[in-house]
């Protein structure tokens, strides 16, 4: 499917038993095929904002537009089937095999069994898992890294127009996390799916993002390309967060920028 654009327009969320906004009037746009990282500390509203896109969280006011259409006007079930969703706890269905997990959205969309089987094998290969070995496994027989690969495969199975990822690699160890990040960069580059990615890990944000949106206390602190945040942090908080004042980081960044220019 053609990659979607996602636009937040004064998006505001308040949870029922709270007296302050979890997300307060956020506006920015994610272009088609872009990977935007929402970066901020826990409780800053980044996951909440992410979950307004597929209407798991309702807006108090403002709008979220996917391809120019206000999601509030769409059937939530229909909307969600067109948008991939990956969460930190993965949530593979324990009562289904790996194949059934990966094929769940295609099956909801009424694909034929033959199409689903072929797509499942294709996806397992895409995430570097041998289909003959993994197809019939139960989620309980997977390592954390394998499980999250399946989680990613499940999210992109029906060729969604956008992908929402909520700290997907937060629960795996560093080595596996790096491998998964590298794979995600490859997959997203291959699919050109618009991706909104939530993390509190600055390194992860810099590794993955086309653009980073820094959030704090439910508001956007600064939005820009990684280099931009580093070179022109808009607030002391961003400056601190991206280590913009740190000499070692400055040296690495200068070198990195030269490499990018040289390409």
């Amino acid at each position: 499917m053609k990659p979607a654009t996602i636009r937040f327009d004064d998006s505001t969320v308040r949870y029922p038993d709270s007296d302050r906004d979890a997300v307060g009037g956020v506006s920015f746009e994610v272009g088609g095929g872009e990977l935007v990282v929402l970066l901020g500390p826990s409780g800053c509203g980044k996951s909440t904002l992410l979950r307004t896109v597929n209407r798991l969280v309702p807006l108090r006011c403002g709008r979220v537009l996917v391809d120019g259409v206000d999601v509030a006007q769409l059937d939530p079930v229909e909307l969600r089937r067109g948008i991939g969703y990956v969460i930190q706890a993965i949530g593979l269905f324990a009562n289904m095999t790996v194949a059934a997990n990966v094929g769940v959205v295609p099956s909801l969309l009424g694909w034929s069994p033959g199409e689903i089987t072929a797509r499942v094998d294709e996806l397992l290969r895409l995430v570097d898992l041998d289909p003959t070995e993994y197809r019939t496994r139960r989620p309980s027989a997977l390592s954390g890294g394998e499980a999250q690969r399946i989680g990613v495969a499940r999210a992109i199975a029906a060729r969604p127009r956008a992908l929402l990822m909520d700290e997907p690699f937060g629960a795996v160890d560093v080595v596996v996390r790096t491998a998964l990040q590298r794979e995600l960069v490859r997959i997203v580059a291959e699919l050109r799916t618009t991706t909104l990615f939530v993390t509190h890990d600055v390194d992860e944000a810099f590794r993955l993002a086309d653009r980073i949106v820094v959030m704090r206390d439910g508001r956007v602190e600064q939005a820009g390309e990684p280099f931009e945040l580093f070179e022109r942090p808009a607030t002391p908080y961003v400056r601190e967060l991206v280590h913009a004042g740190d000499d070692v980081y400055r040296r690495y960044f200068a070198r990195g920028r030269e490499l990018v220019r040289a390409r």
């Binding site: 979950r51 597929n54 798991l56 079930v77 229909e78 909307l79 969600r80 089937r81 067109g82 969703y85 969460i87 706890a89 993965i90 949530g91 593979l92 269905f93 324990a94 009562n95 769940v104 959205v105 909801l108 989680g151 499940r154 999210a155 929402l164």
Partner: peptide
């Protein structure tokens, strides 16, 4: 039933009845 599975089921586009019949009830 693991809340993450229920969250994923909704997020992937199962209707409330499908979440119950395909994920919650079997478990």
């Amino acid at each position: 039933v693991d809340p993450a599975q229920v969250d994923a089921a909704h997020g992937l586009g199962m209707s409330p009845a499908q979440v119950l019949l395909r994920v919650e009830f079997p478990q």
